[in-house]
Structure formats: structure tokens, C-alpha cells
Design a protein around this nucleic acid. Structure first.
Lengths: 338, 338
DNA sequence: TTGAAAGCGGTACCAC
DNA sequence: GTGGTACCGCTTTCAA
């Protein structure tokens, strides 16, 4: 005996039509342009819809209209990351116009990003949002010819694929160097990710340039591995003190690391900023609350998402876009740690 | 003059077929069951695919196969939240089998969750993942009759809609009460969200029961508002000291709040745990690193995601599921703050 | 091993 | 204001 219950059999437009004694076309109209349907018919159809619990099949609609109201976003990491904040803002902005967000997590891998873009493009999103501006030529070409709006975020570039909203990581790193110099520190280190994190690399590049501009000695670099968690930052401090005991200031590639490093110093009785000054990047939630509080660069995480969303909404509504490249800037936040 | 370039016109199966001199059917086979196609034909088709940069239209495929390889997940918040960790693990697990994750952010609003579920269901996902177990009767019924696997997460319930993976927030709260009692604290407070956060409520309920079981005085409750950020936790401490200066221990509804509260105490010179003991919930990344470190409950954020993903993969592959309710437990982490 | 034809569940366009 | 009909791009079934 077959015990599986008969499949619930979703009702279709035609089922509703039959129930209401009208054509499928009219039901479709009730759903999309109710104003064009006579009051009486509309009510009859509506009640049939309710009775049957009819839920339009968006897959079919998408095929027919060749539009999906779905936006794809690809980010390096979803968990404990500022990108999640950007996604929330993006999602909220898009939701105001009925667009939904399909997120792909590339796990900081360029190859994986390439695959994701291909796979996602097959879903025919109405637009795509990417993180960063460095990607393979193939993917770039694919996107350029895909015929949909593309927003690159979190970085700036002179020639984006299409749209671009972010800030200059390079300039931020440069500013940190200048600040550190002004404060009198001279034996400077950098702790952060490099491989597979182009934005962190940019910061270091800017930082290096800044130091060089002030005639300072080359930066002492400690590269850390994949999940750049606070305890990795703490370990970074230990390595720094071992390899470069003379260092008097350190710039962390992200606050996530910096907070760990800062707390490790507190724990070990290393005076911050007297013995070692610390500058972070990102201005995380706790960065203003630690003792000492963390000097850092605040970046417009949420704003990147909302502005990217607005650009897309404009573009998708056929409105003109004033500027294809939006620099949202960053803010130097001086606190106690440096 | 019309300056808009002619639409790039994506190539379709038929275009590839024509290029390769075969039928559309054969091209489809090359893509889905290459083994059934003669070597020579296959190569010819493949090169046509490459030449044309053909990317299969998944919307059309989805309509034809009535399966989308898309899983919908609805969470209360995407940003700076443990749910993002769950999503990352879920996404990674599903990706191993070519499923993608469509995330909806309900912003902790039950009404918004209802809407989201309806909207998302229209996209015909192959399964749906929800956060928590409390929802409107209507939505529950809708999901129960939708004919797709449903996983409720982050909580346990005796009668899930379908599948359920999480832990008992209530039991965790209860354990915290017992611990606090054992450590000799007697004037106990709770600071956390209540409205629109059923899990936090559960914790408080369990906490209350635990305290009552030990004959302790009613808990001093300070409810905080929507984004439960660290600085809200810090403000909570101030309010606590003002309203209940006699309090000797406080249980925070989440580590995000607790870290803020803890650092506020450090900043103000309030001895932790001597003057005020602090217990958090969630074991965030920095919780082990603060000075003093935070005593808390570690919850299986990522595991919830991976287990939910595996349950779904099993179900979608038609495999039997041993247990519909999976209790992943939690772990009491004793540190320095209490 | 390959191809022709009929869907999948909607929408667009054009009559009535 | 309403209905008929040809698609949207792919898969499925059945023949050849």
C-alpha cells in the first residue's frame, strides 16, 4: 500500500479562473492591474483566490516576463563580517521595491567567486552586486556582456564594469601612516591578511606609501591566515613582540584583529599606547568601548549597501544615474589606543 | 537617433543547437546526461556552447522541472548576528550539492516574517528554513500545506511543522540561574530584549524558574530596545546601577549586550565579578578575550546551519531522516566575570 | 543515439 | 472589460 499522501497539487491560475467562472487572463489582471477589472468580477476572483489559497508561481512569471525581481550579491564572507551589514542595508533598500537578495559566499576565494557568478547569472537576476574590484578577466567580460546592472562595492576603481560604490582603502592606509608619524611613532608594524584579501592589501599599500613619504623605515609585516578572528589578532601581537620587539606602533588590517590584539596587550600588561600604539580598521561595535578604546578608521558599511541598492533601483526603474562611481569616504576616529 | 545598443540577446538552447547542427534536445542532453550522447556530437555541441558563451536559463529549467535548487531561509537579522554564522554554515553545506540560499531578513518582526514567507514561497524553493518556532497560525498552516521540507531552527519544540534543529534556550537560562545561585549571588538582574525576541524571552523564563527554584528574590528586569548593540548593554549597566544599586549579578540576554556591559564596568571601575558578576549568552568571538573574560553560554551557531543543511539534503535526496527533532545542546563556559 | 512535440504556469498582444 | 492565442526557454515523453 502506498502511504504517501497525494501531492497537495498547488492550484494554478486556471484553477482559480474555473472557480470564478472567468478566463485565466482575467485572474492575472486581478493580480497585476486590478484597476482594469470590473468591481464585481474582481471580488469574485479574489474570493476564489482566497478559497483555493492560490499563490502565483513566480518561476513561471519570471520566465514569461524575463525579469525576476531578484538581485544577486557575492561577498567574501557572510559570518561575523562587515559585509553582512552591507547586505542587510542592501536587502532592506531593495525590499522597499519588492526585490529580493540572493547571496553567494565566495569564502574569499577568487576561483569560487568566478563559479558563483556563472551559477548565479543562470538564475537571471535583474542585477548583480559584487565585493571589490579585482577579478578575473573572464568574469569581468562575462559580466560586462551579461546585459544587467553591475555594482562593484567596497573599493573604488577608475573603470568599473558598470557602477561602483565604496571608498579608498589605499587612501585610508595612507592616512593612518601620516597619523602614526605625527604622533611620533617610528618603528611601525602591520598585522593583517594579504593573500586573497585585496582590500587589506590596498590598505597596506597605502600605509607603506605613507610611511615612505615620511622617510620612515619599512613596515614590519605580519601576515595572518584565513579567518581573521580576534584571537588571531592576539596571536599576531605575540608574534610581533617576538620578531620585532622594538616596534612601537601597529596597524591592524581590521578591527576584528585589532580588538584581539588590544585585549591581548591589556591581558599581558603591555601599555597601550605607551609601549605599543594600536590602530585598527573598520570601527566595529566594541571598538569604542574597550579600555583603552581603539583608534580606527570608520567605514560606511551600511551606506555602501543602501547606496548600492538605490543606484540599482534607479537603474532598474530606467532613471538616469548621475554618477557611476560613488566615493562614500571613510572617517578617521581618534581614540585612546594611538 | 536611438543610441541604446541592441540588447545582447542571450543565446538559447536552440541557438547552440543550430550552431552545432543538432536538435535542442541533444544540447540539453549534453548538459545533463552527457553519457547518452555520442562522443563526436558531444564535442561539437560543447564547442558551440563555448563559442556562444551559452549559459542555461535556470528559470526556464526550473519551470520545466518544477524544482529550483534554491532554499529559502528567514532570519530575524543579518547584520552582526549569530544568525549570519548559521547562514554561512547552511549555505556552505547546501552548496556542496548545488543548492543556493535565498535569505530573507524579517528584522525581528513577526508580521514581516509572515509576508516574507508568502513572498518567498512564490519562488518555489525546494525547502525553507525558519528561525525560531513561534509564528502565526496562518503561516504555520501555509507552510504545513506547502508540500516542502521545513526546518525550524534555534529553538526546540515538541511539535515542529516538519523538522527542527536547535537547543533549549529555556534550559540554558535555567542553568545560568543555578550557577549564579551556587556562586553565592542573591540579588540578580536580567538585561535583554523581550519584545519580538522569543528566544531571549525563553532564556529569561528559564532563568526566572531557576531562581524561583532556589527560593531567590524575583529577578530585576531591564528590557532593552531594538538593536541590542554593545553600547545598549553599557547603557543597561548604568540603568541597572541606578534602579537596582543592590544588584550583585546580572545575566545578559546576549553576549553582544554583555560585552558592552562588561566593558562599561571596567571603564567605570566597577569590579567584575566582585562588585557585579556578569553572565552573557552566545559566546561571541571576543568574549574569551576581554579582561575579565566573560562567563557565558556557548551555542552551536554554525552547527545549527550545517545540521539543518544536512537534514535538508537528506530529505531532498529522498533519504530517510532518523530524527525530526535535533537537540544540539549548549555549553556553559565558565570564565572570569562570574 | 537523436529528434519532434507537448507541456511547465504564467504574461503580452490583439480581438471582441 | 474580457477572452483567445502565441510565446518565455527548457525538459520530458515517445518515436524513429
Amino acid at each position: 500500500m502506498d502511504m504517501t499522501p497525494p501531492p497537495p497539487k498547488r492550484s494554478r491560475l486556471e484553477d482559480v479562473a474555473r472557480q470564478a467562472g472567468v478566463s485565466a487572463q482575467t485572474v492575472s489582471r486581478v493580480l497585476r492591474q486590478p484597476a482594469l477589472v470590473a468591481e464585481a468580477t474582481r471580488l469574485r476572483v479574489q474570493s476564489a483566490i482566497d478559497r483555493l489559497g492560490y499563490l502565483p508561481d513566480l518561476v513561471a512569471r519570471n520566465l514569461a516576463t524575463s525579469t525576476t525581481r531578484m538581485i544577486v550579491a557575492i561577498i567574501p564572507s557572510l559570518a561575523s563580517s562587515p559585509f553582512a551589514d552591507t547586505m542587510q542595508a542592501l536587502s532592506a533598500t531593495l525590499a522597499t521595491n519588492g526585490y529580493q537578495l540572493l547571496i553567494g559566499d565566495s569564502n574569499y576565494s577568487p576561483e569560487h567567486e568566478d563559479e558563483l557568478v556563472r551559477a548565479m547569472l543562470g538564475r537571471r537576476p535583474d542585477a548583480i552586486v559584487l565585493t571589490g574590484t579585482s577579478r578575473s578577466k573572464k568574469t569581468r567580460a562575462l559580466l560586462a556582456h551579461a546585459g544587467l546592472p553591475v555594482v562593484e562595492t567596497w573599493n573604488l576603481t577608475a573603470n568599473p564594469i558598470d557602477l561602483c560604490v565604496g571608498f579608498s582603502n589605499h587612501a585610508a592606509g595612507f592616512d593612518v601612516a601620516r597619523y602614526i608619524f605625527k604622533r611620533g611613532y617610528r618603528r611601525v608594524a602591520f598585522i593583517g591578511r594579504l593573500r586573497n584579501d585585496p582590500r587589506s592589501e590596498d590598505r597596506l599599500r597605502g600605509f607603506r606609501e605613507g610611511l615612505r613619504g615620511h622617510g620612515m623605515s619599512p613596515v614590519r609585516v605580519i601576515e595572518v591566515g584565513d579567518p581573521a578572528t580576534p584571537d588571531v589578532g592576539a596571536a599576531g601581537i605575540d608574534e610581533l613582540l617576538r620578531r620585532y620587539p622594538d616596534a612601537d606602533a601597529v596597524f591592524f588590517g581590521s578591527d576584528r584583529l585589532a580588538i584581539g590584539g588590544l585585549l591581548a596587550c591589556v591581558r599581558r600588561g603591555i601599555g597601550v599606547p605607551d609601549r605599543l600604539a594600536i590602530v585598527g580598521f573598520g570601527d566595529f561595535e566594541v571598538s569604542s568601548l574597550t579600555v583603552p578604546s581603539l583608534t580606527t578608521i570608520a567605514v560606511p558599511t551600511r551606506e555602501i549597501g543602501s547606496v548600492a541598492g538605490e543606484l540599482l533601483l534607479a537603474r532598474l526603474a530606467g532613471r538616469e544615474i548621475p554618477e557611476r562611481i560613488v566615493d562614500l569616504g571613510y572617517r578617521f576616529v581618534q581614540r585612546e589606543s594611538a
